[in-house]
């Protein structure tokens, strides 16, 4: 449900950048977020549609990119991309130990790229 607050920030930043670059109308907004941020894509899309309805940006596309988790084993130090969050609770595939992991990527919400007219 925090998707509405996030979208409000996303649109604030996007229109700021649009004005700064002399654009008139957003055609594409790309957002990148980590697996750990527990964002619901459908809720983001719904919020986006609500924010652009009746504005010059109506019809713009929203691209959502989920950044996978990178885990570093606290035992052997080996770093790898994890296929799911559940892997945080499993032993390290390299050393076989259950030492826990540091998250090196997969946390953070960024406005990544805009396209405009």
């Amino acid at each position: 449900m925090h998707e509405i607050s996030l979208m409000s920030d996303i649109m604030r930043i996007a229109t700021e950048e649009l004005v700064r670059h002399g654009g008139r109308r957003l055609t594409l907004v790309r957002v990148r977020y980590g697996v750990l941020n527990q964002i619901v894509p459908d809720a983001m899309r719904m919020a986006f549609d609500a924010f652009i309805a009746g504005t010059p940006h109506e019809g713009a596309a929203l691209e959502l990119k989920e950044e996978p988790l990178r885990l570093r084993c606290r035992g052997c130090g080996k770093e790898r991309e994890a296929a799911s969050r559940e892997e945080m609770f499993r032993p390290c595939p390299s050393c076989g130990k259950f030492a826990g992991f540091e998250c090196r990527a997969g946390d953070g919400i960024f406005l990544d790229h805009l396209e405009a007219e």
Partner: peptide
């Protein structure tokens, strides 16, 4: 027009 940006969405709150 392409506008490359990498901005933390939570920057104002942070």
């Amino acid at each position: 027009m392409e506008i490359p940006v990498v901005r933390n969405v939570l920057e104002a709150n942070d």
